[in-house]
Design a protein around this nucleic acid. Structure first.
Length: 546
RNA sequence: UGGGGUGUCGCCAAGCGGUUAAGGCACCGGAUUUUGAUUCCGGCAUUCGUAAGUUCAAAUCUUGCCACCCCAGCCA
């Protein structure tokens, strides 16, 4: 993994901690809960956690925060591993909260001994009702002052399965009057009979995030626990656990702002719903902002990382424009993607003075200094893009018009001599003559033409099915009720009648390929009003391998 | 109306008492160009939410105000 260039406030803090000798080295953790697939927001978290460790020669673990068995699955664990690897990071250790269930339990008994935790018989509703409000303090539980002995007996009975789900819980004894609601005797253990994806039915009580997380961090030797802004209010509780339990050195929690992109759904809850309701093909549907989905759109991982790094790590809530992401995708693809030609709206072009076939060379990527060269076959019968010919050309139109000249990319300059129309006046064919002296790279014709267009050889090309994912979960109304419906209706379009080079089909192994238009072509499309498919073709990884 | 945060160009974002207030995206010019792309050069905040105050000097310090975000799961 090449280091991504970053500077941010977290690195400054870590640097200071190092310089002041507060920590001897850096240990972080990337802490997803295996309850869904990773999305582009997690790339930012990876950049922060892996990136910070990398920068200071430290280590970053992959930590699965699996304290809620009712939501977690092995499928997600596998997907998360795969996605991190694809992004390019390698973790030091793979750790699970469930690895520590025994220790976490022992610490709970310790809290009870210390008089810092008690078993509460209140129901969830009662606890909620007695928690107070934002402006009023809560009321202490009637069970708050049980003796340590009684609490211990009860807690052990909870563990042994003596009580039904929800009938009791273990609470930290902190301060019901705290202005920080997280400190109002938070629940730290609940009774929950659910099969855990790793520990099976061994446990019927599970620790809560707020209690388990600081312990897991400490046990892993985490020096800096980096998380998102919504956990700021939890930091006092995080610290309470560490201080009460006497952790030394106690990990330091630092929060940063989540990643937001305009018109992009970034909530796992919503993404999950889309998958479960079948509105998308799965978590890896190219319309999804998941890492797997973005991968299937042909977006290179480096683009994601560059984007996150450029967007920056700080504490201010912000929303990046999609065009910002698109820039890094284009930037990366421009340097790395294979090029090929395809015609989306075919218009027949016949070269009347040409017979036979000949190979002509094609710079795969003309912007690269040592662009690989590919050979393509030029012939008499071609297809060009409908939009590249105009009967009534607007001012400054550089492409083909009646009597005009245009260069066929990688081949000859042609002149349009005749336009064939159908009964309704639609152009169905353009008949041209080619200029033999104008052959690509051997041009002695002296002609200067302003336009160059892409084409395919009609006798050699193949029909292709192109899926065009124009809408990446990008509906401004995604919070509204009509989101699901619009999502379903607009996001995926199949473009039919596309003619592509055999090369493309070969690369796609005969499988219908996806030409991914949105981000990568957008700039070009907007600039000249035509869809330019000839340059960047980014196929699904799985297809590309063949 | 409690607590915790955040406010610097249309969008991100550096800046940490003395800088002409970095950089990127977007946008606008101009040059190169075998795709109106790419590449290249140039332009783009006398101003830092706001009002006072401290100071020779403030985006940076103080105070008040305003706006936005987060918190009342036995979710994470």
């Amino acid at each position: 993994m090449t280091e991504i260039e970053t500077t941010n406030f977290i690195e400054q803090i870590v640097k200071e901690d190092l310089e002041e000798g507060k920590v001897g080295g850096v240990q972080t953790r990337f802490p997803p809960e295996p309850n869904g697939y990773l999305h582009i927001g997690h790339v930012k978290s990876m950049l922060v956690n892996f990136g910070t460790a990398l920068k200071f020669g430290g280590k970053c673990n992959l930590f699965f925060d699996d304290t809620n068995p009712s939501k977690e699955k092995t499928e997600f664990v596998d997907a998360i591993r795969r996605d991190i690897e694809w992004v390019g990071y390698r973790w030091a250790k793979e750790v699970y909260a469930s690895d520590f269930f025994d220790v976490i339990y022992d610490y709970a008994e310790k809290l009870i001994h210390m008089g810092k935790a008690f078993v509460c018989d209140l129901s969830a509703e009662e606890i909620s009702a007695s928690r107070g409000t934002l402006t009023e303090p809560g009321k202490e539980s009637p069970y708050r002052n049980r003796t340590a002995e009684e609490n211990l007996r009860l807690f052990r009975e909870m563990k042994a399965g003596k009580y039904p789900d929800g009938s009791k819980c273990l609470r930290a004894k902190i301060d019901m009057a705290s202005p920080n609601i997280n400190l109002r005797d938070p629940v730290i253990y609940r009774i929950l009979r659910a099969t855990h994806h790793r520990t099976g039915d061994k446990w019927c009580i599970y620790p809560m995030y707020d209690y388990a997380h600081p312990i897991c961090d400490y046990l892993q030797g985490v020096t800096h626990s980096l998380c998102t802004l919504e956990f700021e209010d939890h930091r006092p509780l995080y610290d309470w656990v560490g201080i009460t339990l006497g952790f030394s050195p106690k990990p330091r929690q630092i929060e940063f702002a989540r990643l937001n992109i305009t018109n992009t759904v970034m909530s796992k809850r919503y993404l999950k719903k889309l998958v479960e309701q079948g509105l998308v093909h799965g978590w890896d549907d190219p319309r999804m902002p998941t890492i797997a989905g973005l991968r299937n759109r042909g977006i290179p991982p480096k683009a994601l990382l560059s984007f996150c790094a450029a967007a920056g790590i700080c504490k201010a809530d912000s929303v990046c424009e999609q065009s910002y992401l698109e820039h890094f995708v284009r930037d990366e693809l421009n340097a790395s993607a294979e090029r090929a030609m395809a015609v989306v709206h075919p218009l027949k072009m016949t070269i009347v003075n040409y017979e036979g076939e000949e190979e002509t060379e094609f710079a795969v990527n003309p912007t690269l200094e040592n662009s690989p060269v590919r050979k393509i076959l030029f012939g008499k019968n071609l297809y060009i893009e409908e939009e590249d010919f105009s009967l009534a050309p607007p001012p400054k139109y550089n492409r083909l018009k009646e009597g005009g000249y245009v260069r066929l990319k990688g081949a000859y300059i042609v002149r349009c001599d005749e336009v064939v129309k159908d009964g309704e006046g639609n152009v169905v064919e353009v008949r041209c003559t080619y200029i033999p002296e104008s052959r690509s790279n051997h041009d002695t014709s002296g002609l200067k033409v302003r336009g160059t267009i892409h084409w395919v050889n009609a006798d050699r090309c193949v029909d292709a099915v192109v899926k065009n994912y124009e809408c990446l979960l990008n509906d401004a109304a995604y919070d509204g009720q009509d989101f699901d419906e619009r999502m379903n209706r607009e996001s995926e379009k199949v473009i039919e009648g596309v003619k592509a080079e055999p090369y493309l089909a070969a690369a796609a192994d005969g499988t219908p390929f996806q030409l991914l238009r949105t981000a990568y072509y957008k700039k070009c499309t907007e600039a000249n009003g035509k869809l330019c498919l000839s340059f960047i073709v980014s196929m699904k990884d799985s297809y590309k391998k063949s």
